[in-house]
């Protein structure tokens, strides 16, 4: 791989992770590679079980006990210093977590310790990373709570159960950027929230990112959210990135039949009837994945080659990469439809 440009903050390089289970090894991610730039918002989209959550957990080394990283590196560049996250010592890892890379998990409903006030949980976090001054912590926390459009004083002195779901989610976002991390990982940041609360969270996130300049990796099955927030979109299928590119490239000129299939299965609010289609079949079993291209059993473009050879992730135009033998046929068929 090429040398890391100073603009790159995080590089995932040929990362493969296996879950050891009683039924066999689950190949959760396979040769995943991507670069995340400073200030960039990248969306990992894919269905449940596609491996997108595994990737995000690997970034902060919070994989379940039965997970084994079989190959690859996660390089983190900070002050022209490059470290492999997978090689960090316990002490280094503890400091890397939240200080450099914060992760906002899915379901903020349960993300806070129910018996501690929000204040205590902000203080715990700051102190674990060397902040001693309580007033300084308070000042920073209140300004962040204000940034996420909450009543700072009231929320800071609340117990978690005194906050609504949307408020908890926003408080968690504020806690996420408490230590000014370079990278914030968001796992399904709006799932299970009400529509109007989702809108508030999206607006708050955009606002925060503009002001605080961190990079975002967010994981979602919601294509609309990716369309709205992402600079770069990566489609994950069966543990592999099958397509990655700028948000416009992915949405308007997708080169992988799976990405295209997802796009044509999502209803819109446009003032015309949607013509939608499901992708036939269901996601593959990752203990014994299909040969060749893992999408071939569900793909209408599949040929004999697809059953045998796994297509490499190849550069198309600009920064747009896709792993498909039949990009041209897909593009041609879309022109016909249009």
């Amino acid at each position: 791989m090429s040398a890391m440009s100073p603009e790159t903050i995080l590089r995932v390089d040929e990362l493969s992770i296996v879950y050891r289970t009683d039924r066999g090894d689950v190949r959760a991610t396979n040769d995943i590679s991507f670069d995340l730039k400073r200030g960039e918002a990248m969306a990992l989209i894919g269905e449940s079980g596609s491996g997108k959550t595994t990737i995000s957990l690997a970034l902060i080394r919070k994989l379940p006990k039965n997970a084994v990283v079989t190959s690859g590196q996660i390089l983190y560049q900070h002050d022209s210093n490059v470290q492999d996250v997978l090689g960090l010592s316990r002490r280094q890892l503890r400091s890397f977590r939240w200080n450099d890379c914060a992760m906002v998990f899915q379901g903020a409903q349960n993300a806070f310790n129910p018996v501690l006030k929000i204040r205590k949980q902000f203080e715990d976090t700051a102190r674990a990373h060397g902040w001693a001054d309580k007033t300084a912590i308070r000042k920073r926390a209140l300004s962040l709570l204000e940034l996420v459009r909450l009543d700072p004083e009231r929320v800071y002195d609340s117990f978690p159960h005194e906050l609504s779901g949307g408020m908890k989610q926003r408080t968690l976002l504020a806690l996420g950027v408490l230590l000014s991390p370079q990278v914030v990982i968001l796992d399904e940041p709006t799932t299970a929230l009400d529509i109007l609360t989702q809108r508030a969270i999206i607006d708050v996130l955009n606002d925060m990112q503009r002001k605080l300049q961190f990079s975002i990796i967010f994981i979602s099955h919601d294509l609309s959210l990716a369309a709205e927030m992402a600079d770069t979109v990566a489609t994950v299928y069966a543990g592999e990135i099958v397509e990655i590119g700028g948000v416009d490239e992915i949405f308007y000129r997708s080169l992988h039949p799976y990405t295209y299939g997802l796009l044509t299965s999502v209803p819109t609010l446009e003032h015309a009837q949607d013509v939608l289609q499901s992708i036939p079949g269901s996601p593959p079993n990752l203990i014994a994945p299909p040969s060749g291209c893992k999408f071939h059993p569900r793909c209408s473009f599949a040929s004999d080659q697809c059953q045998v050879d796994s297509p490499p992730l190849q550069l198309d135009i600009g920064s747009h990469l896709a792993a498909c033998w039949h990009k041209d046929r897909l593009l041609a068929s879309r022109k016909e439809d249009a």
């Binding site: 294509l223 949405f251 446009e270």
Partner: peptide, 8 residues
């Protein structure tokens, strides 16, 4: 309020 699956 609802986002659409179309960036523009």
């Amino acid at each position: 309020a609802i986002p659409e699956p179309d960036p523009h």
